[in-house]
Design a protein around this nucleic acid. Structure first.
Lengths: 352, 352
DNA sequence: CTGAAAGCGCTTACAG
DNA sequence: CTGAAAGCGCTTACAG
C-alpha cells in the first residue's frame, strides 16, 4: 500500500495532489472545497473522493494569505491572569460566544504589566488574530491606533481604554460598590473600611468612588485610617485586613473591592475570630462564598454577560459595523448571604 | 504628510514598501529583518529606518508558509473547561513555560465531549498550531495518528492517551488516592464512601482503584452502597453526598475524587450539620480549603509541575527529540487541615 | 555582500 | 461549468 512506513513523515497533501488524483485543475478543487455550487456533480464527487483518500484538508494559512479579507477565524484575548477565577470565567464566556462562529481563541495573561499588554497585543495581531478582546493593564492604549487603522478590531472588557476611542463592556462598578456600602450603612454601620486594588486600575478607582459616594450621601466621614489600596494578592489583603483589626478604633464593617481581596479579608477575620462580629461585603462573587459560615454577601458581576457582549460587539465590528464606539455597562446584583447583614456590636457602636 | 486621514484604513506595509523606501531589494529587507549578519551596516541602517518610518512588521503568516519548518510559534491546548480552577491552573502553567519561548497558546474547552476533542484538535492544527497539549475527553486518540505522521507533536496532560502512543504527564492518581484512604483508615474509619466522576475518565478510574486497593490492604470490605460514580458538577456531588448521609448505615468518612466533588460533599455535610462528625479527604486542592471550618484535608496535585513538564516535553519533541514516548508521573502530596483527621464517633463505629 | 527568479498553497481575475 | 495565469508576502536556491 501507499501508507507511510512507521516513522516516515508523510507530507501533508495539497490541492495539487488532490487535483492530480481527481484529474482536474486545482481551481476546481478549490471550488469544491469552498462549496461553490458551480461545479458539475460528477467532478465534485471525484474531487471529494480524492480528498478523502488522501486525507486532504485545506491549508488555512495559505488561503487566508491570498484572500482579500485576510481573516483567520482566530481572535486574541488578554486578561489579568487566566488562573484567577474572574479572568477564567470571562475567557470561558468569550470562548462560548466565539464557538458559535467557529472562531478560536489565542489567550495570554498580563499580570497587570503594561509593557506586556503592548507586547502581547502586537504579537497576537502578528500571529493573525482578526481582533482582540482586552482586559487592559496599561494606562494608555494609544499604541493600538496604528493597528486599528490597519483593520484590527479591538473591544475592551471590564475596564475602559484610555487615549483610544474604542468599544468597552464594563460592570456597573461605582453603583455596585455604592450599593454594597449603603447596605452596610442601613445595617447600622458608621465605620466601614475599604480594601482594594491599586487606584491605577480603573475598576478599583470606580469602586472606591462608589464607596466614597455612599458615605457622603449618608453624611459619614471617610477615615483614611481604614482605607487600604494596592492589594493584589490574598496574602496582601489578609495582612491589610489584620492591620485594620489591630487598630485602636477598628472598623465595624469591611467593603472588599475584588474577589482575592475578599478572600484575604475573610482569612484575617477568621484568624481574629471576628467573622461573626465584623460585617463584610465583597465585590465579585467566588466559589464557596455560600458555603462559608457566615455566608459571604457579595456584589455579583454578570461575568457571562460581560464576556458575551464583548465578543458579540467584536464580531459586529469585524462584520463591518462602523457606528461610533461606546461603552456598555452591565449592572451588578447583590447576593445576600449573612456576612453583610451583621449589625455593629453595641460596644463598638458606642465607642465609634 | 503621508499619514492617513482619520477614518482611512491604511494597508499594512510589506517588505516591498520597505525595500522601495530604502532603495534595496526585498531580499535585503528580509535579511535585515531576520538578523542575518551578512548585510553591510550602511544598508542595514537604511532598511531599519525605512521599516520604522512605515511601522513595518513582518507578516508571520507569509514567512511561515514559505519556510521549510512551517512553524508559527503557536501551540494548541485542549482542557475540560477553562473556568474550572484545575484546568485554569494547568493553562497558566503551560502559558508560563511557553512564554519563555515566545510561543502563544490557542485554548479550547471540551466539556468532556469526545467529538469536540477530535474536532478541535484538528481545527487547532489547521489554524497552524505547531503542537498540541491535550487533556483528553475521548476514549480513543487514534484519530491523531495521521496528524502525527504529518509532523504535529502531541503531548497528553493529566490523562494518558488511548490507542495512540504518545507522551503523557499525569499525577500519581492511584497512589494519591490510596494514601488518602489509608489516612482515613489509620484515623479509625472502616466505612469510607467514594464519590467520583465517571469511570470512563482515566483519572477517575485510577483514583477509584487506589480507593479499592487501600481498602483491600486493610482487609476492609468495599460496600457498593456507599460508592457513587458519574459526578461532574457541584450540584450532583451535593445530592449524592446527601443521599449517602441519609442511608441506614451512613459512612463515617468520605473520599471525594475531584475538586468539584469535594466542594459538593462539603456542602452536603454542612447542610446536614455533619462537617465535624464525618471525615473528608478530597483529591485536588482548591481555594479556601484552608479557610473552611474544619479545614479540608486534600491530596494536592503539583499543577504547576504537570503543566511545565508537558510543555517542556512538547518543545523537546518540536526540537526533534525522537526518543520513545513515555508517561511521566508527578507524585501528589497530602495536605492535612482537619477534615481528614476526624475520628469515627463511637456510636457509629460500634454500629458499623 | 546583494539581488532576480522561483515557489510555499492557496484564491483572484480573467478567458474560454 | 472549467482552467491557465498571476499574485498574496514572504523565503529558498542560485547567480553574480
Amino acid at each position: 500500500m501507499s501508507a507511510p512506513s512507521p516513522g516516515t513523515r508523510s507530507a501533508r497533501p495539497t490541492m495539487k495532489d488532490v487535483a492530480a488524483l481527481a484529474g482536474v485543475a486545482i481551481k476546481t478543487v478549490s471550488r469544491v472545497m469552498n462549496g461553490e455550487p458551480t461545479v458539475a456533480p460528477e467532478l465534485a464527487a471525484r474531487v471529494h473522493n480524492a480528498a478523502d483518500k488522501l486525507g486532504y484538508r485545506p491549508n488555512l494559512t495559505a488561503s487566508s494569505l491570498r484572500r482579500g479579507d485576510r481573516r483567520t477565524a482566530t481572535i486574541g484575548m488578554l486578561v489579568d491572569d487566566v488562573a484567577n477565577p474572574f479572568s477564567a470565567a470571562l475567557l470561558r464566556a468569550v470562548e462560548d460566544e466565539a464557538r458559535q462562529r467557529r472562531v478560536q481563541i489565542l489567550i495570554a495573561s498580563l499580570d497587570q504589566d503594561p509593557e506586556r499588554e503592548r507586547e502581547l497585543a502586537i504579537t497576537l495581531i502578528d500571529r493573525g488574530a482578526d481582533g482582540l478582546v482586552i482586559v487592559p493593564a496599561a494606562a494608555d492604549q494609544s499604541y493600538l491606533i496604528a493597528e486599528r487603522n490597519r483593520g484590527t478590531c479591538v473591544v475592551f472588557l471590564d475596564r475602559e481604554p484610555r487615549l483610544l476611542i474604542a468599544d468597552a463592556v464594563v460592570s456597573g462598578n461605582r453603583s455596585g460598590a455604592a450599593a454594597a456600602v449603603e447596605h452596610l450603612i442601613s445595617a447600622g454601620h458608621q465605620r466601614i473600611a475599604y480594601l482594594g486594588d491599586s487606584m491605577a486600575i480603573a475598576t478599583a478607582a470606580q469602586r472606591y468612588e462608589g464607596y466614597r459616594q455612599a458615605l457622603e450621601r449618608a453624611r459619614l466621614e471617610a477615615d483614611p485610617q481604614i482605607v487600604r489600596f494596592g492589594l493584589r494578592t490574598v496574602e496582601a489583603a489578609t495582612q491589610a485586613a489584620a492591620s485594620l483589626l489591630g487598630q485602636p478604633e477598628p472598623p465595624t464593617a469591611v467593603f472588599a473591592s475584588q474577589n482575592l481581596v475578599t478572600i484575604g479579608a475573610i482569612k484575617a477575620l477568621r484568624q481574629a475570630g471576628m467573622q461573626d462580629t465584623i460585617a463584610l461585603v465583597g465585590f465579585d462573587d467566588f466559589p464557596l462564598a455560600d458555603t462559608l459560615t457566615p455566608g459571604v454577601t457579595v456584589i455579583r458581576q454578570d461575568v457571562q454577560r460581560l464576556g458575551m457582549l464583548a465578543t458579540q460587539l467584536l464580531f459586529s465590528r469585524l462584520d463591518g459595523d462602523a457606528s461610533p464606539a461606546r461603552t456598555h455597562v452591565v449592572e451588578t446584583t447583590m447576593v445576600v448571604r449573612g456576612s453583610g447583614e451583621i449589625r455593629p456590636s453595641s460596644v463598638l457602636a458606642s465607642a465609634g
